[in-house]
């Protein structure tokens, strides 16, 4: 393939990688997976930069990618340290546990219908006879519990 076609194909490949990373960043809830998707967006940009550098016959694009690598390594170290601390506080990697940082007038995100696990049908639970007095219910806590 000639140089112009190589440039355009690489730019489209970079755009697709960036787009897929963006999908994951928005649509996933696991903090680590979201961060992986951010790294994927960086990869898409890197592919485009290298392609432009070759097209202009200049090392500038590859220089930028080297610095992207450096910054991504710093970012990964800091973010993973942060995730470990957040996990120790909440007991989960779910990003919705941190929605209590939202503004006062925003409604909480609540999981309406959580499907059972794939192998839930195989588990048989013992039947317990009800005993004692039923405690008073707090409807807000039943909908949204921020901590385990």
């Amino acid at each position: 393939m000639n140089e112009a076609a190589l440039l355009d194909n690489s730019l489209i490949l970079g755009a697709i990688l960036f787009g897929i990373g963006m999908v994951g960043m928005i649509a996933r809830r696991n903090m680590i997976v979201m961060f992986l998707c951010a790294e994927m967006m960086l990869q898409g940009v890197s592919v485009s930069l290298v392609a432009w550098g070759r097209y202009h016959n200049d090392f500038g694009g590859q220089m930028l990618v080297i610095f992207i690598l450096t910054v991504a390594a710093c970012e990964a170290g800091l973010a993973l340290a942060l995730f470990v601390v957040l996990f120790q506080r909440s007991g989960s990697l779910d990003i919705t546990y941190w929605q209590e940082l939202r503004e006062d007038n925003q409604p909480a995100y609540v999981d309406r219908d959580v499907p059972e696990a794939e192998d839930a049908a195989k588990v048989t639970w013992p039947h317990l006879a009800p005993a004692g007095i039923e405690p008073p219910k707090n409807p807000e806590k039943e909908l949204h519990r921020s901590r385990v």
Binding site: N30, A76, G77, L80, S92, P115
Partner: peptide, 21 residues
């Protein structure tokens, strides 16, 4: 490093928030 943190934080694999999004 990602895998290390994943193994520390979520050794069971899939959690419900990975399944529902």
């Amino acid at each position: 490093t990602f895998l290390f943190v994943l193994m520390l934080a979520q050794p069971d694999g899939t959690a419900f928030y990975d399944r529902v999004g």
